[in-house]
Design a protein around this nucleic acid. Structure first.
Lengths: 147, 147
DNA sequence: TTATATTTAATTGTGTACAATATAATTGTA
DNA sequence: TACAATTATATTGTACACAATTAAATATAA
């Protein structure tokens, strides 16, 4: 009984560590591609959201990316400094800062159109498995965020 | 064609983001339990390894946890300050720092014996799914680390 | 309408992560 | 034995990540 409990505490039996490690390792596969454009992974997924829907507020970005203003504010300032986005305080509600892609930011999307395919190949995973895996992750994420 | 490429770039189609988000959210479920013992998640998994096998070097810990000395050195110093471990430079090879659990560090394991079960319930995932999910993650991790 | 509450970003502080570099100890080899 | 190459850890610098707090703007209620 106590032995079972100790077994469950082994690193290799931790689903959470598998997630944590996998996440980091996959992100590290992105780095060569992203670095060559001066981007980090977090900056990249922020751009993914904006390419899909421009002119979001900081909190809307945070809701989609599951990041708070403590992470996003400095990150967005960096993207602004590299002239990929603009941060504009909303005229109607001055609490809100809206984020807009610049022309340079919009154009940058073209450089990444092939990246998902490239990353998929790098991962060496089968399409079926990738679909299953993502479905399970999304369901798990849904469970957690309902709490 | 171009439309497909843009679809693939949507955040919701990114396996990597699902992993990244899931990892963070599950870790956040651990926080209440860990904080009450003054631990972070990374400190916790470091202790998991040491509870399984005491007296590892910094690089051995790093190999298991997929962390480098830049992360581990300050983390281990914090665990040492809270008297859960000791860092001892190896007599035979002075390059090596070995990490030992203190009595207090060994005892602490008892406080966490029920945590895996608790976390599993919190996640709301089915046992079968958790097993499948971990198997897929470990295989993916294996693929990546073979590159 | 004025006081209170809520919302939104920004700031501060702590703790990872990791690349790049530094330093010291050890090993391999001419 | 010297000395170059390697190994192990530590340090530095940059960038998240998030809790807690602050501050400003807006909404709500008495």
């Amino acid at each position: 009984m106590n032995g079972d409990s100790k077994d469950m505490l082994k690193l290799d039996n931790q689903l959470c560590f598998a997630l944590y490690a996998c996440s980091k390792e996959i992100i590290s596969l992105y780095k060569p591609y992203l670095n060559s454009h001066g981007l980090t992974y977090t900056q990249y997924i922020t751009l993914l959201v904006l390419w899909e829907q421009d002119s979001l507020s900081v909190s809307e970005l945070g809701n989609k990316l599951l990041l708070d203003s403590g992470t996003l504010t400095p990150l967005l300032k960096k993207l602004e400094k590299s002239q990929l986005i603009e941060r504009v305080r909303d005229k109607d509600d001055e609490r809100i800062v809206k984020v807009y892609l610049t022309e340079k930011g919009k154009m940058l999307q073209d450089s990444f159109l092939e990246l998902p395919q490239k990353m998929f190949c790098n991962s060496g995973i089968k399409l079926e498995e990738a679909i299953d895996l993502k479905a399970m992750l999304n369901q798990l994420l849904g469970n957690i965020r309902k709490l």
